[in-house]
Every structure is written in structure tokens, then in C-alpha cells.
Design a binder for these strands. Structure first.
Ligand code: FES
Ligand code: FES
Lengths: 146, 146
DNA sequence: AGCAGTGTAACTACAGTTGTTACAACCCGG
DNA sequence: CCGGGTTGTAACAACTGTAGTTACACTGCT
């Protein structure tokens, strides 16, 4: 199973917030949806999760959404955690209730758990060391080249 | 979204094959299913994938399944690849068709792709450096302690 | 030939994702 | 203080992938 695209959409939205195109025009969920090419409600749902995680602040009425921190201080791991339903340490699902009468069944879970945890942590560490700023800088750089 | 439990079931099954309990009794899909606590067809499906990947050999009739290699030469990454539907480099799903008229939309995919690829590779490297033998050794060790 | 086991298709039930409609709550400008 | 644009959410549909189950043809040993 693939990891939900909510994560990439969230990064997309945060990039928009970090790169204010026109100062005058407010960045509403509808405009963001137009950029991501989806429905405004999908954006608002994700904004709700980002808000709960304290990454953005939303003005309920006349469309205003802002980052609460500098892009350099927002890691992709925070976004991942804010948006994923995957609970900490649950990326891999392990079949529950193996037969305790079996030697393998009795110990497979703890034997696997250590390795799976390390694998998951390795993935998260890469995200932890990438900031939103790196992403937006990359976007800006690519925009200049093309 | 969590990664399918097919992976952990596959490791479970391979562990059974690597630790032959009683030499006489053949290890049928039904016995394996009893150990994992699931349906024999689920086991056979997974065995089919492992067979296609060349990790096991199955005698169609009178129930005999064997590893084609030493447990020390089978990495968890091979099992993961054999069993996951996740295509190489597709662990994260990215929202397709972002708006090309938008600066962010035009470049977000390639800007994210590099990081996501590194994250995924980091996870896979941990699996690549763990062998089936390490798992079974761990199981045997835990069995002795308890 | 008989039989225990595998290979596979077909179906169900279920969970999570994504998109969509609908509407209440909210805030701001006039 | 009212109207209009916006957010917050609930509810629902369509879809996808997972896991379990039944059924049955096929296989190969004895
Ligand atoms: S319970 Fe998983 S092999 Fe025994
Ligand atoms: S922000 Fe994703 S397309 Fe512009």
C-alpha cells in the first residue's frame, strides 16, 4: 500500500504559503485547490490537520492562512506526522494473533519489530533532515532554469 | 496507509521453512496457515509470490516447500520486493496532474521526488542488511530465554 | 485410481482514500 | 448589524487494495 498523497498535497500547500505569489490576493482553499488540482474540501481537511499540528494558522472567515514558523524551521517529518494516519511506529502492519503454540509464532513479532522499527526510523530521519525551505528553494531554482 | 501484512506473513512463513521443526511431517500450506493463524489460501498466494521471486520451490502435490537458498543469503528486502505491490520507487504516492500554470505546481513533483526517493531507499537499505538467518537466530534466542 | 496438496479464480466484507454536496459557523466591510 | 465570501465538518459515493473464504481443476506420489 502506498503512503497517502495527503503528504505530498500538504507539502504542496505549505510551499504555496511559503512562496507568496501576490501579496494582495488572499490564498483561499479554493485557490489552493486550483493549484493542486483537487477539491477545496480536500485542501481544508489537510489544512485542518496542519493547523492541529500547529504548523499553520487559519483566519476562519475572509481567507487568510499563514505559516506559524519560518520554512527553514519546518521539517517534512513534521508534515508527515501531521498528515499521516500512520501512528508512530506503525508503518508496517504485522499479522496479529500468530499461533502461540508455534515456536515461530511465539517470537516472530518481537524478532521482526526491531528491524521494522529501524527501517521506519531510517525513512523518517531523511524526512526530518529536509526542511520546507529546501523544497521551496529547489522549486525556485528549477523555475529559474526552465 | 500501512504496508501490507503480507510482508510479515512472508517472513513468518520463510522462518518456518528455515527452522524445520519435525523432519518427517511435511510443511503444507494448511499447517503454515495454522501457525500464522489465517487461511491456507492466503499462504498459498504468498508462496506463489515467493516462488515467482525464486526464493522458494514448491512441490505441487504431496506438500513440500523448500528454500532455494541458505537463510543467510536471503535478505528481507528481497522478501519485501517479492511480496509488496509497491513498485520500485513508489512508496509515496504523489498527487498527479498539479496545475502547470502554477509555479509550485510545475516543479513540486521533481522537487519532492529526490527527497522521497532517498527516504524510501533508506528504509530499503535497512531491510537489505537484514537476512532471514538473523530473524531465525533471533527467534531461537528468544525461545531459549523464555 | 485414489488422494492429499497446490494453483487460481471468484466472491464477500471491510477499511482507507479521494472527491463531492450541503450546510452551519464565522468574520469583516460597508 | 447585515450580507457575502470563507472556513469547518458531516455525510455520502466511488474506488482501490486487503484479507478471508469457497470451490474446483490440476498435480504427482503411492
Ligand atoms: S505462528 Fe507464525 S509460524 Fe508459527
Ligand atoms: S501549488 Fe500544487 S499546483 Fe500550484
Amino acid at each position: 500500500m502506498q503512503i497517502s498523497s495527503r503528504f505530498s498535497v500538504a507539502v504542496h500547500v505549505l510551499s504555496l504559503l511559503a512562496l507568496p505569489e501576490q501579496e494582495g490576493v488572499p490564498l483561499t482553499s479554493e485557490r489552493m485547490a486550483g493549484s493542486v488540482n483537487t477539491n477545496p474540501v480536500v485542501i481544508r481537511r489537510i489544512l485542518g490537520q496542519l493547523k492541529k499540528a500547529g504548523l499553520v494558522e487559519v483566519r476562519p472567515a475572509s481567507g487568510g492562512t499563514f505559516l506559524t514558523r519560518q520554512p527553514a524551521n519546518i521539517t517534512l517529518l513534521e508534515v508527515y506526522r501531521a498528515v499521516e494516519v500512520v501512528e508512530e511506529g506503525q508503518l508496517f502492519s504485522v499479522h496479529d494473533k500468530p499461533n502461540p503454540a508455534c515456536l515461530v509464532g511465539r517470537h516472530i513479532q518481537s524478532a521482526l519489530d526491531d528491524t521494522l522499527q529501524r527501517a521506519q526510523t531510517a525513512l523518517e530521519q531523511v524526512l526530518a533532515h529536509t526542511t520546507l525551505q529546501q523544497v521551496t528553494t529547489d522549486i525556485a531554482a528549477k523555475a529559474l532554469i526552465s
